[in-house]
Structures are given as C-alpha cells and as structure tokens.
Design a protein around this nucleic acid. Sequence first.
DNA 1: TATTGTTATACTCTATAACTATA
DNA 2: TATAGTTATAGAGTATAACAATA
Lengths: 147, 147
Amino acid sequence: MRAFDVAFGRLMELNILLNEDAERGMAQSGLTTSRAGLLWEVFHHGPTTQRALSEALKVTSRNITGLVDGLVATGFVTREAHPTDRRATLVTLTEHGKAIGLTMFQQQQEFAATLFGDFAEGELDTLVAGLDKILTRLRGLAQAQPD
Amino acid sequence: MRAFDVAFGRLMELNILLNEDAERGMAQSGLTTSRAGLLWEVFHHGPTTQRALSEALKVTSRNITGLVDGLVATGFVTREAHPTDRRATLVTLTEHGKAIGLTMFQQQQEFAATLFGDFAEGELDTLVAGLDKILTRLRGLAQAQPD
DNA sequence: TATTGTTATACTCTATAACTATA
DNA sequence: TATAGTTATAGAGTATAACAATA
C-alpha cells in the first residue's frame, strides 16, 4: 500500500467521524443538519431574508421555505416583516433559537479544545501547514470542476 | 483567535471540500451518495445479501430495499437467487456496475495522488501522525456517546 | 419587468410497523 | 420461532416550474 493510500484512509475516517459527531450534537438539540446550518447562518448574521439564506446555503428558495417552516414549527425561528420590502421576510431567532446557537458555538470551542488539546504549539502549526497543502489542491479541484 | 480554532477551521473546510468532491464524482456516474456506498460495498465484497448490506451501511433493511430498487432500475445491480436460502437475494453488480466500481477505485487512487503528490515522504508521515492523534480523540468520543 | 416567496409536483433517503415466505 | 425481504405509511431534504404580491 502506498503512503498516499494510508494518508487518504485517515482523511476518509476523519471525514466520517466528524460528520457523525456533528449529527449527534444536532440530534441532541432537536435539529437536522440542514436546519442547523440555517440556524447557524442566522445566528451569525442576524435576521436574514430567505433569499439571502438561499444563496448562503446554496439551495433553492423553495427549499428554504421548507426549512424555515420546520424551524418555525419547532420554535427556533420566526418570520418577521421586512421593514422596507413587503415581499421579503426576515428569518429571526427566537430566544430558544438564540440559546441553541450559543450552545452550538460553545460546543464547537470545546470540541476544538478536545481534538487539539494535547498538541504542542509547534505540532499544531505543522499540522495546519499540512492541511493547507491539501486544501490548496482541493480548492483547485473545486474551481476546475464546478457543478 | 486560538490556534485551536485555526486548526478546527481547516478541518471543517477540509470536510466540506472532500464531501463536495465525492458528490461531484458520484453525480458523474449517475449515482447518489447512498447508492454509491452500496455499490462500493458490493464491489469489494462480491454478491451480498440485503441483510448484510443493512448491517454494513447501518441502515434499515427497508432502506436497502429502496436503494437496491433504484440501482436495479438504473442498471448497476441485479437481484440474484441465493443458492441455499430461498428467502435471501444476492445483490450482484452488472457489467456496468463493475465498470463504475472500478472507475471509482481508480479515481480514488488518482485523487489520493493529487492530494498528497507534493508531500515529501517525511512530511506525509508527520501529517498522518497528526491525523492519528485527532482520530484517537474522535474515536473516543464516538464510543463515549453512541447514538 | 424583475424579485420574493409560495403552491404544485416529484424524487431520494430515512424510519417504524405489519406482513409473507422461508428457515 | 426466527430470519429475509417487502408492503404500508410517514417525515425530511432536494429540485423544477408556475404563480401572486410587491418593487
């Protein structure tokens, strides 16, 4: 087996485990991955039009309608009137939605500390340098083959 | 910003870009992620019962029925009789399914070479060591908090 | 005319529960 | 009685297309 393949296997396992961890966290909050992504966006950007969410999450506006419907029904967000454009709605976090956003943020901080807690400073820099090398290639591929 | 958070950000971007790349590849083959996972399993293990696929992919047997239905309809697999158990079916690759499996394998090899092609031998070892440190933590979390 | 968001329709992935055929 | 897979039903995410209200 080539050294390439060993490293590639590690990346694949990393990918799987990171996704599983994220899903566990969201399930605990009563969120799905897609809804959590929308909530996260509103948490960071404040009240947001569905149009803007459609662009940020790269899904159709029809899809945003459905996600917001779900988040409204489960008490995470409300639709508020846009102050100047009566066509638009501003998706806004409820108190519960804000609390969950904050929890997600804090859990992310703790998670990062857990993952990297036993790295020495220099080790961490070396790791980041290696990841950047990979990311450069990946960004290139993404640009070369858009959807 | 803590060094932790920088490294964490790199992992998140890596995760996203790896997933996007995988989806691009599958879409080209006319597969979805789930169907590709099933095909991949059969490619590596040979004709497989739906029961075994249900365990391997960690989804319900009902879900396997649907995935196999889709793969049969699109010509990637067939359902064959089990030689000794008349209740069971053996999901088997068509010629096209085999060809796609082989292509996926080759593309994975090329992909690994692209990602790591400009790493020196020692660099690659260092990267793998760093990833292993993270993976150890992640595996621990996965075991501590099963679904 | 162009934009915002919805209704209409359809496909995929996923799950639970009840059921059939076979072991 | 237990197992392999299906039918029945349901919810979630995704997409395209047609449409209403507003800009």
